[in-house]
Design a protein around this nucleic acid. Structure first.
Ligand code: SF4
Ligand code: SF4
Lengths: 152, 152
DNA sequence: TCCAAAGCGCACCCAAAAGGTGCTAATTGC
DNA sequence: GCAATTAGCACCTTTTGGGTGCGCTTTGGA
């Protein structure tokens, strides 16, 4: 389907939160207190983002996550790649060789290369959408002073 | 997932074939003899395309499908809409009201409107990719004279 | 020293979607 | 009438996505 997964949404929300925190660590609990999201799943997503090198983690009682790069350096494409894996758009032309030998239509397929062009343009779009642009545009109600509020 | 379904691929291949036929009817059997595709599923897809008004059907022993519009008038977006239904990209902002009241994050969601902009650009892209451009670009081995070859 | 709060890892379950099939009509040319 | 074709609907199977259970490790602070 032509749709982002919830995992990707969770990841984006978490990253936006981290970007707001400007380098301060933010725990999963903190994120889930700000947005009504399933805590465990968000934790899973953050872990994946950590593996992808998009966030750094610190363990221990006052641990949490921080952005690993500046918000300008993180793109929607990075997040999708980290959380949804391979980006094939069609079943052929996926980077990894697929079991079964791939698509039988391939040798005579008239739509393969046009579709690939579409895919490339789509990914260009995703790569050009930075976390910074997400943070600065939306309605995005401001937090209180960093580290001050968060009543719960 | 950010990926087209097989149904959409089948639909595109079928439409390309119909475009080649230039107004002549083509049966599901004929299409599946040209491309190694599961006959029944392709039939199902064609039926959906018919409901969406993209193809016309004629029943009976020498029946089949024909393009309902010129190849320039059919876009990738039309096909996706016909075969994958609603195009939300996120779970909020889908045209229909969803059960459960929709996303709880919505009132404070910082990524909603940026994501929608991405969605719009994506669909612009899909709407600007016509069936004609698919037919004329790919490797697309030419058929014999229309109605002549097709040995099987 | 101990405990609570956080992340880590893995496996597992449940629901939804995608892909595909069975079967039975209805239509139409030969 | 017969064979080829589309129409309609229901059903199954596999895959994917979303979400949890449970125990472990790390670390700061009471
Ligand atoms: S070769 Fe053509 S039909 Fe096969 S997966 Fe690629 S685009 Fe789809
Ligand atoms: S989190 Fe934001 S973008 Fe995602 S569904 Fe909710 S309101 Fe829409």
């Amino acid at each position: 389907m032509l749709q982002l997964t919830k995992r990707t949404e969770y990841g984006l929300l978490a990253l936006v939160h981290l970007a707001d925190r400007e380098g301060a660590v933010a725990s999963v609990r903190e994120i889930c207190e700000r947005y009504p999201l399933p805590k465990r799943t968000v934790a899973e997503v953050l872990k994946d983002l950590q593996h992808a090198g998009l966030v750094d983690s610190t363990r221990g009682s006052s641990g949490g996550y921080t952005l690993a790069r500046a918000p300008e350096q993180v793109t929607l494409g990075d997040v999708v790649r980290a959380l949804e894996g391979a980006p094939p758009l069609t079943t052929c032309e996926s980077p990894i060789v697929l079991k079964g030998g791939g698509c039988e239509v391939q040798p005579m397929c008239p739509i393969k290369s046009p579709i690939q062009r579409v895919r490339e343009r789509l990914w260009q779009m995703l790569e050009h959408t930075t976390l910074r642009s997400l943070v600065s545009s939306g309605p995005h109600v401001s937090l209180g002073a960093p580290g001050a509020v968060e009543s719960n």
